[in-house]
Design a protein around this nucleic acid. Structure first.
Lengths: 341, 341
DNA sequence: TACACTATTATTATCGTTTATCAAGTCTGT
DNA sequence: ACAGACTTGATAAACGATAATAATAGTGTA
């Protein structure tokens, strides 16, 4: 059993040609049911399993979907954890498996090289891992890919994106309904489409409530760990504190809450903090973070559907989907303090 | 670019044989530096990437490590999420990647079949996914594997296991130090080695504090979602409630806290709840769960080290390692209520 | 001049499948 | 009885890389 049994072993055992054995095992018609039965029986007896490498080489596919993970970005790790069960579950329904590669910084060459080795049939691109040129290259190669978390204004690409605009609108609206009028916002300018939608949702909600826009309340943040600390400190330095903050995502909210609490502010009594995405990290603070949750369980399966579609019907029009999000009020948001309202 | 460029294309372009090209690219000595340079240059120009399937077939390995995930077990998903960053990070250091397969129930045939196709070079077995016979089969096949989370009393197998005994001892000791003497315990009899260690740690701690053992306080639980509900309800039915409970793992603790709070009990004022494992789920309740944390970041990398070692030096003695765990007191444990002490 | 030796490149077999093409045998129908 | 169709199976050519072996040219030495 140590040395793997090949199709040839079965053929020799039964004095057949290996093509016949192959056909018998793969359900071709031009094999008598008698031989087929014989072949399957001995295949089972010998513990035969077709060599994946040989089969892949011949068939020109591997039935594997790739996904690149930048392990230094806590945000991405959390996000991946959320979609993983749905993704692998759905993939296995297609007889496909998920391969997880590491990517350092935005090593596009590495990503493209992996795709070109043919070790995966398609790739899921996290919005934070690729650049425009990469998409062009993949399109050139006609390599199947889908983008997760960013809307690409190009009809040739398939993507799945949460409804940033509506989520952002409702998040700010939630704060306004609680009575807030001085609401800070953290943005990530380099993530253009997501950021634009966030901003637009926020400002539309303000406008609809006739709240004037205050530039001092717009701060920048990044995706790296600890990226909520600086903007929180900046806010603390304002002569007049906002009564609520919209964090760009839950990890930023976690950082901000820690900073506020360290400085003696109570959340939500003194200041409300609203997160985004619905990461598990939103539960790590006390109080838990009010947020706009992406439906991770659905997203995982759906992104797999999309990539599977790209692979199996490359000529079908790419799908571009917007996922509805859900506002979840937890403990980090409440009415503003009376004295500062 | 659409059609992949093979080693033969380079050979033809330079009027060389493909073996020379192969050698040039793989750093063999018997190639003149002039040709080597020429080859690498045109390889780059043509965007050549060696076919993974062809290479795998010829080399007899794939540089992939497999891991099976039962997506219906929240516990396992949480655990995997915890070790994932460290695992893929370390794997990429060995030039290996992680493939995630789904497993339904304990489909051992599926697991073994995947191993026999040769699509992975080794496999990481979660303690919850395999059976004794599987280990025997893998040993027969001489297929590299390591077990995560269970101590196998067999010198031929490599495993990595948290220090259940010491962790359990310290968890109970922590409660005793807070003043508890009536401490309930939930066990999972079917997980023999882990359970035995848990039990022994618990009872040793009780013995060392001269606390008599009370059988009514030992309850059974399972791994499935919601498995903490039943034991919590059983406890509520006792004529005399314990002042503290040791949950078998954090998810059980989450369930129990919910049940207690639903019934009007305050945690930790009325009853303390101690978790185990240090899953992220421990943060989902208010208060956060006191627990004994496994060092997930280290475990992920270390389990990769172990499987890598099995693969590269199959004749070296298998390593069996016990990971130190850390007691983390959060909000779910406190002194017992005075009136029930 | 002949031979050994080195350095470099070519030839060819091989990994284990799948599949296009062929060949042989069995029926069917006129 | 024989052409033609229909079954069933065999042969051999890929897939693209690697590696063992062979071949060639060039150099040095007796």
């Amino acid at each position: 059993m140590t040395v793997p049994v090949s199709i040839r072993d079965i053929a020799q055992a039964l004095d057949l040609s290996n093509s016949t054995v192959s056909k018998a095992l793969n359900g071709y018609a031009d094999v008598s049911s008698a031989t087929r039965e014989l072949v399957t029986k001995t295949a089972l007896e010998l513990g035969y399993q077709p060599s994946a490498s040989a089969r892949n080489l011949r068939r020109g596919r591997t039935d594997k979907i790739g996904l690149f993970l930048n392990t230094s970005l806590e945000y991405v790790v959390d996000y991946l954890s959320g979609i993983l069960p749905g993704a692998v579950q759905t993939a296995s329904g297609f007889n496909k498996n998920l391969v997880i590669y590491t990517i350092v910084d935005k090593d596009q060459d590495h990503l493209l090289n992996v795709c070109r080795t043919g070790e995966i049939d398609g790739v899921i691109l996290f919005s934070t891992h690729y650049e425009g040129a990469t998409i062009e290259s993949l399109l050139d190669d006609r390599f199947p890919f889908v983008v997760l978390g960013r809307a690409i204004p190009d009809e040739r690409v398939s993507y799945l994106v949460p409804d940033y605009y509506s989520g952002s609108y409702r998040a700010t609206q939630h704060l306004i309904k609680l009575g807030h009028r001085r609401i800070a916002f953290t943005s990530r300018p380099e993530l253009t489409t997501a950021n634009d939608a966030h901003m637009k949702g926020h400002f539309d909600a303000l406008r609809d409530a006739s709240i004037p826009r205050a530039d001092e309340l717009i701060l920048e943040t990044r995706l790296e760990p600890g990226s909520g600390i600086k903007p929180a400190e900046q806010l603390m330095g304002l002569h007049r504190l906002p009564t609520a903050v919209r964090a760009f995502h839950d990890l930023v909210a976690v950082d901000m809450i820690r900073v506020f609490q360290d400085k003696g502010l109570k959340v939500p009594e003194d200041i409300s903090v609203m997160g985004f995405d619905g990461l598990r990290a939103g539960f790590m603070t006390i109080p838990h973070i009010s947020t706009v949750a992406q439906p991770f369980d659905i997203i995982g399966g759906r992104i797999m559907d999309l990539i599977h579609r790209r692979i199996t019907s490359p000529h079908a029009a790419p799908l571009q989907e917007v996922m509805p999000v859900e506002l979840i009020a937890r403990g980090s948001t409440a009415a503003p303090p009376a004295y500062r309202r």
